[in-house]
Design a protein around this nucleic acid. Structure first.
Lengths: 239, 239
DNA sequence: ACCCTGTGGAATGTAAACAATAAAGCCGGC
DNA sequence: GCCGGCTTTATTGTTTACATTCCACAGGGT
């Protein structure tokens, strides 16, 4: 397996690897919102030339993580609360539409797969594994989108969920949130199995709105709890 | 004005200009679907270096016009009918949602602007100006999306409509189609003005489906009429 | 004290050279 | 005559070098 892994590693361009590295840097907070991506410094740090760094930055611009200004460089972009709300609304519409479609087209295997995911998430809640729950949550939503059979919608949904996840990581920290969310998953799944498209759409949209509410309370909590933010803010990439 | 124009022209990077040029080449058929974008040839032709061409190609990948394969280059991408159908479905959901939201939030100026666009389109139909009608059509849909107040949804809609327009340009060639489409615009506009969200959503989704149907008949006509396709296919960019 | 302007340095935009990869053509064997 | 492997060649990926732009800071004037 490690040879396959190595081959796959080697089979992607430097730009891709640099892009992943930059994502990690942004994700970890080493590159805080508003920070400029210094091409020569990052290139030195990653052991590559400026070219791949430039390409990676442009790619990240397309995913919405950075914005590039002519002759000024690429800056880490941060979602405003308002933008997050708009994305939640978009996702709500897409997820509702997908659920409605899946309600009339769901196969036995698909139902089993979804049920297995939800069961696994319950186990992880019981086992006190929030990271695992978070992964399962993403898996559930993406499976619903994939099973609904519209690749374009799925791509848009996944894309925007990724953007949200920059901010959303801690939304499930409160223990009750996870159980609550998974109960909504179960109700949605039952509607889908029952073939009730209208109800499935309704529940899916409702679930997304609940997620938005959880997100907002988490944000509010984060704001109230200032953490050692200013310190992290000052962490820059230096030569 | 020409100084402003010149300044604006100069104020964008070469990559942007190259990207526009490549789009034009693809649009015009000089780079037919499946053709490879030869970096050195295009660079020579446009009088720039390979760097901007590469960046432009990567940007075009994001917009869906080309796909790039590692160590093989960028290839002009063509939408399959199935992908087009999926995009129509996505747009239907988004446009319906936007119309519903606009129905409860539409201001007087917005209503006037939309009505003006529809009126202009009727004039262009009467005046035998299909190009103008097409532009107005785009304008109407994008205004509805913009007025609905969700920038994320608007961006997704515009993005995907652009992809479709590669194939869709001739959908309105049949004279009756234009009048039909604009009548649907009027009905939708009335529902919005009446503040009837459910009806607006319904009409907007219906309108998108009608657009899909027009697209399909246009495609079918195009397929039946083989045109001198093979000749165009051979037109390559040579040094 | 404030503002404006000119200069210096640093960072990006662009171009040209180098390396590595994949496709195409050629040759030999079967 | 056809197929498989090798070699060649064209093209992309990457690095390096050069040109241009912007920002900060110092200096002088008001």
């Amino acid at each position: 397996m490690s040879t396959i892994q190595a081959a796959r590693e080697a089979a992607q361009s430097l730009s891709s690897k640099v892009q992943a590295a930059l994502e990690a840097l942004i994700w970890s907070g080493a590159l805080p919102p508003g920070a400029r991506l210094n091409e020569v410094t990052l290139a030195r740090q990653l052991g590559v030339s400026r070219g791949p760094v430039r390409e990676a930055a442009r790619a990240l611009e397309r995913t919405g993580l950075v914005t590039v200004i002519l002759n000024r460089g690429a800056f880490v972009r941060t979602l405003t609360i308002d933008e997050a709300m708009q994305i939640y609304e978009l996702n709500s519409v897409l997820f509702g539409s997908a659920a409605a479609r899946l309600a009339v087209s769901c196969t036995g295997e698909q139902a089993m797969a979804l049920r297995a995911i939800v069961d696994r998430m319950d186990q992880r809640i019981a086992g006190g594994d929030p990271e695992g729950f978070f992964a399962g949550n993403v898996e559930f939503h993406e499976h619903v989108m994939a099973f609904s059979g519209n690749a374009a919608m799925e791509a848009v949904y996944v894309d925007h969920t990724r953007k949200l996840s920059m901010l959303r990581r801690r939304s499930f920290d409160r223990a009750g949130s996870m159980a609550e969310a998974n109960a909504e998953h179960r109700r949605l799944l039952e509607s889908i199995l029952a073939g009730d498209a209208a109800s499935a759409r309704q529940l899916a949209e409702q679930h997304t709105r609940s997620g938005r509410a959880r997100f907002l309370t988490a944000i509010a909590y984060q704001e109230a709890q200032p953490r050692a933010a200013t310190a992290a803010e000052k962490t820059r990439i230096n030569a």
